[in-house]
Amino acid sequence: MSLINKAIAGSPWLVHCNCGSCNGCDIEVLACLTPVYDVERFGVVNIGNPKHADVLVVSGSVNPRNERMLKNIYEQMADPKLVVAVGACAATGGIFRECYNVLGGVDKVIPVDVYVPGCAARPEAIIDGVVLAVEKLKEKLSGEKGA
């Protein structure tokens, strides 16, 4: 079983969803793929398709217009799946929190597993977030096995 867990933890495929971010966090997510940070070391692939992905990386705050889109993408992912909210806006709504057209953070719509702070979030932090998400996934899996 350890090989299977290792495999699951060793191959997080991402789908990145921008819910009205200012593009600051998006750029930093992409920066993770560059030679400097190279997340592929951890088996991370930016797959671009929720049906293939394990981790949904969301940036930006949620508003009524994109709430349905976010839910739809989350639904189309296969279990086990994780959500990482990247940046202040995705975590809480950030500076847009009080806006009339903003619902708030991502967790208002779908369950979030890891919050990555920052405005914009640094690539190191994003990598940490994904790795933490993977750890949580491992816990989840072993918990299921135990129960």
């Binding site: 090989l3 299977i4 290792k6 495999a7 699951i8 060793g10 191959s11 495929w13 030679p35 190279d38 592929e40 070391r41 951890f42 088996g43 394990d54 296969a78 279990d79 086990p80």
Partner: peptide, 20 residues
Amino acid sequence: RQGPPLLQPFYDLIKLWRKE
């Protein structure tokens, strides 16, 4: 870049197999 481990394709495969 440094790249993934050699056995990465197998990890991917096992993971996909175990997914819902």
